[in-house]
Simulated assay, not measured.
Amino acid sequence: MKPIIAADELADALAGSRPPVLLDIRYRLGGPHGRPEYEAGHLPGAVFVDLDAELAGPPGEHGRHPLPDLEVFTEAMRRAGVSAGRSVVVYDASGGWAAARAWWLLRWAGHADVRVLDGGFAAWTGPLETTEPAPERGDFRPAPGALGALSAQDAGALARSGLLLDARAAERYRGEVEPIDPVAGHIPGAVSAPTSQNLDATGRFLPAGRLAERFAALGAEPGGEVGVYCGSGVSAAQQAVALELAGYRPLLYVGSWSEWCRDPAREVARG
């Protein structure tokens, strides 16, 4: 199953006898909370999920967006109606970053049937709703580990002996600027691969073949494992979607740079 779904495919699925659970993950890093946008209009039946509160734990030693408390995440998914055997579609309005975080967490927790709306909220041309739905409570039961997650030690080792991609903007990778974290630079051995290059001018993912060419040029082996990190494990999840779409097996370093740079014993590269 592809990790993305087109808007017209989603419209057909929503009109079917067993529509997918639809999750609205609109969120902007450092920006306003996404709920007002959701309340102003969302896809029919969509449930709002708070990235900071339900898809991440409190900031701390494991970074700005560490893995959420499993009970909190489980409750959020059950409240939204996520159940075994039922598909899930997630969307946002920020290049797939936030939606991909939900995609990755659900996949990591063992829910295989989940896709990201390609192009996000802007791609949807169907009707919108302003009322909040009350879906039947789901029976989601997480089984963590179904999708690969990297620790800081794992990420450092992969950068030395495999392929670890840095999904941040190139100037942050080079250490020329660092607007968020206390230290500038990148994990030694990591390769720069900004997420903006996964999308076309309309905000949709590039075709699988073009993505495969992109990652192969960065050193990915056909069908192989590729690690990825960003600032705090959000935008890197979008890169994980692109990697899977291109036929690779993504491994996400959830703590990412915001965890790595907290420990002065870890080496930092620049340039």
Rank of each mutant, 00 (worst) to 15 (best):
V72I: 13
F73A: 11
T74H: 03
M77A: 10
R79G: 07
R79L: 07
A80P: 03
G81Y: 02
G81Q: 01
S83F: 05
G85K: 07
S87W: 01
V88S: 10
V88R: 08
V90I: 09
W97F: 15
W97E: 12
A100G: 04
A100T: 02
A100E: 01
R101W: 07
A102K: 11
W103H: 03
W103K: 03
L105Q: 07
L106C: 04
A109M: 11
A109H: 03
A112M: 03
D113M: 04
V114L: 04
R115H: 10
V116N: 01
D118L: 08
D118C: 07
D118F: 11
G120Q: 13
A122K: 14
A122S: 15
A123W: 10
W124Y: 14
W124M: 13
W124P: 12
W124L: 13
G126K: 15
G126F: 14
G126H: 13
P127Y: 14
L128T: 15
L128P: 10
E129V: 14
T130Q: 15
T131S: 15
P133F: 14
E136I: 04
R137Q: 12
R137Y: 02
G138L: 05
D139R: 04
R141L: 13
R141G: 09
P142I: 04
A143Y: 00
A143K: 05
P144V: 05
P144K: 06
P144Y: 04
G145R: 03
A146E: 03
L147K: 01
G148M: 08
G148I: 02
A149I: 11
L150E: 08
S151P: 06
Q153L: 15
D154A: 13
A155P: 12
A155T: 12
G156H: 08
L158G: 09
L158D: 08
L158S: 10
R160H: 14
L163R: 10
L164C: 10
L164D: 07
A167Y: 02
A167G: 06
R168G: 05
R168N: 07
R168E: 04
E171P: 06
P179G: 11
I180L: 15
I180V: 15
P182R: 14
A184S: 15
A184N: 11
G185C: 14
H186P: 12
H186F: 11
P188N: 12
G189Q: 14
A190E: 03
A190L: 03
S192N: 14
A193L: 10
S196Y: 06
N198A: 10
L199I: 06
L199M: 05
R204W: 00
F205R: 03
L206I: 04
P207M: 05
P207D: 05
A208D: 04
R210M: 07
R210Q: 13
L211G: 00
E213Y: 12
R214L: 11
F215W: 08
F215R: 06
A216K: 13
A217L: 11
A217K: 14
L218D: 02
